[in-house]
Amino acid sequence: MATPQDSPADRSVQVGGDITGSAVVTGDHNTVQVQPASLPSPETVDIQAELKALQTLLAGFDDPVATGVAQKLAQEAAKPEPDKSAIATTLETGLTYAQSLAGFAEAIDKLRPHVEAAAGWLGKQGYKLLPLVGLTL
């Protein structure tokens, strides 16, 4: 008698240790490309410039949701003290949504360095952004 662990339809994953820097994928014939991130020190990041670049790239998808995310990033970039929590949430929402848009695969290489810099500035709040553009710590 087959156990649930032997079932070919079971796609669960059990991890017994630290898998930082790894990609865990279930399914058949999947490929994953993950690059290690090199996060800059927060004080070296010009967050206004990074948000402007991300705003431009997201607006380039010519999609109302992506444009709304771009506008929210512009509003935060205009503040003397941008809200880290708002930026992290806005970027996570925008990047998660953008993954389903035509052109995301072509834009990912342009997005990656700006997301990496923003994640460095955001600190722990930014780490969850990295996998959205194929980066890992």
Rank of each mutant, 00 (worst) to 15 (best):
L132F: 06
K72C: 03
K84D: 06
Q125D: 12
G60C: 12
D62T: 03
E106V: 03
I87Y: 06
D10N: 11
G94Q: 02
E81C: 02
Q99P: 09
Q33I: 15
L39Y: 07
L95Y: 06
T31F: 12
W121A: 08
D10M: 08
A53K: 12
H29T: 02
P4T: 02
S100H: 01
L73D: 08
L129K: 14
V65G: 04
E116T: 13
K84Q: 10
F104C: 05
Q48C: 04
T136Y: 15
V115S: 10
G134N: 13
G103A: 09
Q48W: 07
Q14N: 04
I19D: 09
A23S: 08
S7R: 04
A117Y: 08
D83K: 02
V13P: 10
L130S: 10
G123P: 12
T26S: 13
T26E: 12
V133L: 14
V133A: 06
T96R: 01
Q99K: 03
F104E: 04
K79I: 13
V13Y: 00
Q99W: 00
T96D: 02
S22R: 03
K52R: 09
Q35P: 05
E92V: 00
G60T: 05
Q33S: 11
W121P: 15
L54C: 04
L73T: 11
T44D: 14
L54R: 01
T89S: 10
D62G: 07
V69L: 13
